[in-house]
Simulated scan of single mutants.
Amino acid sequence: MRSQLPSLSLSSYGASWPVNRRIAIVTCAIAVLLALASIVAAVTGSGNGHPAAGTAAPAPAGSSPSSAETSPKPSSGTGPLSRPPQIADPVAFARAAAQMLWSYDTRATSRDQQLAGMRAWMTREAKYADWASVAGQVPDPVLWSRMADQDQHATAHVTEGHYPSAFKQALADDPSAITEAYIYVVTVNGTQQVAWKKGGSGAEERAVTLAIQCRPNHDCTLAAIAPSVTQ
């Protein structure tokens, strides 16, 4: 029988983060994302259906968990968190980013290291980066210290990633809008396993909607954690 997660769980931290500033970037994202539909159609309609290396063509909308399982995994880094993977596919990158966001180890990682590792995944384009929405997932220093006292750590398993229906509809309505910022909205689902001292452990289902920037001929980056209005 699984133990109930302690109140210090990082998994739910930031769930009540203010949505207003994220609405702005998602609004931009939706507009930007729209144009991708026609690009995807052009890319997948000519050739073998697989995006060429270095392009920003996403996986087919509504891709199944089995197809997403073939996505590249984040490369191992020497720091506390994995380094962002070199992926040009929004859904694959979002899956990797969600796994990163849901994983932590207070036994070996300080709060500052956790934040530094997360920032490495962010877009360098300040106009589209909402660092506050991402940093808000990490507890304040006092709470992180209390979690560290309990040796709390978590791992994550991603089950699937997909474009929300609102995003796909926006793309269909205006396929040219995405060419300004190349930001894609992706919802990712999975499970987080948390453990702490004396064998305590627990698991819970997790879901997050991310704004991912994937410019042509560039690897994807994380722009923001989006409001859960695009499920």
Rank of each mutant, 00 (worst) to 15 (best):
I212M: 08
G190S: 09
V208I: 14
T179Q: 07
I183S: 10
G190H: 10
R215L: 08
N189S: 12
K197P: 01
V208S: 06
I178R: 06
A172S: 15
N217I: 00
Y184M: 01
C214D: 03
A172P: 01
Q213D: 00
V188G: 04
T191P: 00
D173A: 12
N189K: 15
I212R: 11
G202A: 08
E204C: 05
Q192W: 06
E180D: 12
S201M: 09
A181E: 02
P175G: 11
D173H: 01
T209H: 06
T191F: 12
P216K: 05
C220K: 08
Y184W: 05
R215E: 06
A195Y: 12
V188H: 10
G200S: 08
T179I: 01
A211T: 12
A177H: 05
A207G: 05
V185G: 09
G199Q: 02
L210Y: 06
D173C: 02
V186A: 07
H218C: 02
A181M: 06
A203N: 09
T191V: 15
S201H: 15
K197I: 01
S201F: 13
D219C: 05
Q192G: 00
H218L: 07
D174A: 12
C214V: 10
V208E: 12
P216C: 06
L210N: 01
P175Q: 04
C220H: 04
P216D: 04
A203E: 13
N217P: 00
V208P: 04
K197D: 09
G200L: 00
L171E: 14
T191W: 14
Q193K: 14
N217Q: 13
W196P: 10
